[in-house]
Amino acid sequence: MAEIPRRNSVRRSTRLILKSLKRPITGPVYVDLEADDADQVIIDATISENNNHVGDLPETMNNVGDTVIVEENKGPVRGQVTLSDSDNDFVDPAPWSKSKEKRQDNTVETRNVKRKLVLKETEKEIPEAPRLNDNKIKLKAKKSNVDDKAQKRKAKEKIEERIEIVEKADEITKIRISPRILSDMICALSDAQQQWIEDAGFKNLLKFELVELPQRLSYKVLQSFDEKNCMLVLKNGVIEITGKVVHAILGLPYQGAEIEFVQDNAVQERLKKWRSQFGISNGQSLVKASDVVDKIKQTGDVDDTFKMNFLVVMANVLIRSNTNNFVSQAVLYFNDDLDHCAKYNWANYLIKSLVITKKRWMRTSSLFFTGPMIFLLVSIFWFYSLPHS
């Protein structure tokens, strides 16, 4: 077998290359040559009659497009000389080199030509990859979103379901919003505003004067509360936490329907109106309790803004607050007219919040308690002030 020239060797004989290649082919053979003779640049030997081998090509080639005859074992086979610049389907590609190609119109074009000997097999149909059903994709994406929400919900409930109790760094209990906020607001109310508070069922709150809580005593009292049986266990007795007890201590309404919170259009409009007084239009609104009290002090009118401000301060100080220094706006989702507050059981709402926040407090390392700490502490003094005590 003749040796095929490589690298910088000059390829002058197409016949020698094709003769050296003795392997079956099923299609055209493209030979990209770097030769001095422009007519011998690329040869397309198209084999007819389903022959499997390429025979000898004549040493001397005419111009591109001429017909050539290749001698085979079965007889002569016709082929055609064509010019091709295809760079597809390389076999053993040689290094890059620069050459000039002269076309039929005698124009000269300089470009990068890859020295190569290419065997192009018969093209086969590649089966198209199966496409997934769009509905299945949507269902999978929807299932993924549901799984993410479920994981977040489980992570949130993990604290409440945890068995072990986390020890505090110090035996003290703090609250986010000081009772001084509520007492300052009560002192700044106008007569019309006090009348509305009385009609709303919060008459006893007009006597609220507490300004601070002892942190160590609050810790001991909170530890004494049994959230499973909803009772405060003391050395001299037990205080069962009921709606009547809450009403006797704080004066919150304890009869009527259960409080419901919704997120309908009416509630959304109420939220926008409340946030607009602080210059908040969209997004999360971070408002401090002191800012709400300042708004109440600016006017003595009894409008919807005042009613919402009062409920926000009252609920954050007495019932439940956020884990940060900003007020919780949950009470604004109240599913009724704000003038109908007296028709609902606010005492039971406080008890539910007490149980939930106590469970979370026992299972976190935070010293802050977001539940009704004022109620628990005042209930101790109320209990010992009773005649039987």
Rank of each mutant, 00 (worst) to 15 (best):
I4E: 08
S9P: 10
R12F: 09
S13D: 10
R15L: 13
S20P: 11
I25H: 02
G27P: 04
V29N: 04
V31Y: 08
D32I: 10
L33T: 11
D36R: 12
D36P: 12
Q40P: 04
V41S: 05
G55Q: 05
N63I: 15
I69H: 10
E71R: 14
G79T: 14
Q80A: 12
Q80V: 14
D89A: 12
D92Q: 05
D92Y: 11
D92E: 07
K102S: 09
K102Q: 09
D105F: 13
T110V: 05
N112H: 01
N112Q: 03
R115M: 08
E123K: 12
K124W: 07
I126S: 08
R131V: 11
R131M: 07
L132G: 06
N133H: 10
D134N: 05
K136C: 06
L139C: 04
N145Y: 09
N145Q: 13
D148L: 10
K149E: 15
K152V: 11
R153L: 13
A155R: 15
E157Y: 06
E160Y: 12
E164F: 00
I165P: 05
I165M: 04
K168W: 00
A169Q: 08
E171T: 10
T173F: 02
T173N: 03
I177D: 13
S178C: 06
R180V: 10
S183C: 06
D184W: 13
D184I: 06
A188I: 10
D191V: 15
Q193H: 02
Q194I: 01
W196N: 02
I197D: 00
K203V: 01
K203I: 00
L206Y: 02
V211K: 10
V211H: 05
V211I: 07
P214T: 02
V221D: 03
V221C: 08
V221I: 14
V233N: 14
G237A: 08
T242F: 03
K244H: 09
H247T: 10
L250V: 03
Q263F: 15
Q263T: 15
N265R: 12
L271M: 12
F278H: 04
G279K: 07
G279N: 15
N282L: 14
L286K: 14
V287I: 11
A289W: 00
V292Q: 02
V293S: 11
K295V: 09
Q298C: 03
M308I: 02
N309C: 11
N309H: 06
L311D: 04
V312E: 14
V313M: 09
V313S: 08
V313C: 11
R320T: 09
N324K: 15
N324E: 12
F326C: 02
S328D: 09
V331P: 04
F334C: 00
N335Q: 07
D337V: 05
L338Q: 07
A342M: 02
N348E: 03
L350F: 00
K352G: 13
S353G: 06
V355C: 10
V355G: 11
R360E: 12
S366N: 05
F368T: 06
P372N: 01
M373I: 11
V378I: 04
F383D: 13
H388D: 09
S389P: 03
